[in-house]
């Protein structure tokens, strides 16, 4: 089942792109003004390039469906459980950064990522995590004077 889905990746992506193009075209037609060639307005570029996307996308989709479905080379060795967890960790990082502050968030997620990629033990990863988080925090706060998100109680 997974193999079938993966081998259809190329086809799914090509269909997705065509749909995206159609969506942009309809949205631009409704909400933006095309203007004219001599006096282009906001909708000019999106309409032209989404049309291009649709045309090329359809041709591409046809080719993808003619070809035998194959799992793309780069996907052959992906561990999908790790993939999902990593993406979830990234999303969680962005979600939490406002809520718990930069330092805490970086520490948690960095530690989780290090464990995810297979580091052994607990002490060494923890020390590295804290050191990195602290270094980044210091570099941004003191050296570059960029305001990092702070938690309300930190």
């Amino acid at each position: 089942m997974k193999k079938k889905l993966l081998s259809w990746t190329n086809r799914i992506i090509s269909i997705f792109l065509v749909c995206l193009g159609i969506f942009v075209l309809i949205y631009s037609n409704r909400k933006l003004e095309f203007g004219s060639v001599t006096n282009p307005k906001g909708g000019f570029t999106p309409i032209i390039f989404s049309s291009g996307l649709i045309i090329f996308g359809i041709i591409n989709t046809v080719f993808e469906f003619i070809k035998k479905p194959e799992i793309p080379e780069k996907l052959k060795n992906i561990h999908w459980d790790k993939w999902i967890i990593y993406m979830a960790e990234c999303a969680l990082y962005v979600f939490l950064i406002d809520k718990v502050g930069y330092f805490v968030d970086t520490t948690i997620i960095l530690f989780a990522m290090i464990k995810l990629s297979g580091a052994k033990g607990w002490l060494k990863p923890l020390l590295i995590t804290l050191a990195t988080a602290f270094l980044l925090f210091a570099m941004f706060n003191y050296a570059m004077k960029i305001v990092l998100p702070k938690a309300s109680w930190f």
């Binding site: 990629s117 980044l136 570059m144």
Partner: peptide, 27 residues
Amino acid sequence: NFSILMPIITMVTFAGGYAINGSVFDL
């Protein structure tokens, strides 16, 4: 150790991404 390097690079990348505009939305 790759397993340590890559997560650290992730964090540096996020830090850099934030540094552009100071915007969490960018992340």
